[in-house]
């Protein structure tokens, strides 16, 4: 009986577990997302830029929405920070008055360079790779 139970478990278990795990194995691909034109940002200033692009999620193509923080370094140079807090993935918010990025979930704080300065986060904000094509800023996101 033990052998037959084992055989029945294998016969049903292999297809079912492959069936269940399949969508979990896909690795995210990098994708260049158009943020549009970003002009008139003074050096040292930070601006929120929202984006929306279509992404295939399972059997649907749905809009994926989000935003990044763009910092001007002067001379048209930009730094693009991911909005995702490195502690627990809440969205950080730029506070102009204090000059910090603050995570509302556990009061984690990052300075203008994205370095953690207070609260639970220990890793800096992710700097996203970007390029400027025909005046438009494009940023590389893992989708």
């Amino acid at each position: 009986m033990a052998a037959l139970t084992g055989a029945a478990a294998i016969v049903t278990g292999i297809p079912i577990s492959k069936y269940v795990i399949a969508p979990s194995l896909g690795k995210g691909d990098g994708k260049w997302i158009d943020l549009g034109e970003i002009g008139g940002l003074a050096a040292g200033k930070v601006q929120m830029v929202a984006y929306e692009f279509m992404v295939k999620d399972g059997w649907l193509v749905l809009p994926q929405k989000g935003f990044v923080w763009v910092k001007s370094d002067g001379d048209g140079k930009l730094t693009v920070f991911s909005s995702i807090c490195t502690h627990l993935a809440c969205n950080v918010i730029w506070r102009e008055d204090a000059g910090i990025f603050e995570c509302p979930c556990h009061s984690g704080r990052f300075n203008l360079e994205g370095k953690p300065v207070a609260g639970p986060p220990t890793r800096p904000l992710t700097v996203l790779e970007h390029k400027i094509e025909e005046g438009k800023v494009k940023v590389l996101l893992t989708v």
């Binding site: 194995l25 896909g26 992404v55 999620d57 627990l88 993935a89």
Partner: peptide
């Protein structure tokens, strides 16, 4: 989900298994 994925080694896979991928979408 990000608390689960902070568990070393198995965390990220557990999240992918639970959600059927990295996204919190239709799957």
């Amino acid at each position: 989900v990000s608390i689960i994925s902070s568990v070393p080694v198995i965390g990220p896979f557990m999240v992918d298994l639970l959600q059927g991928g990295p996204r919190t979408g239709i799957v």
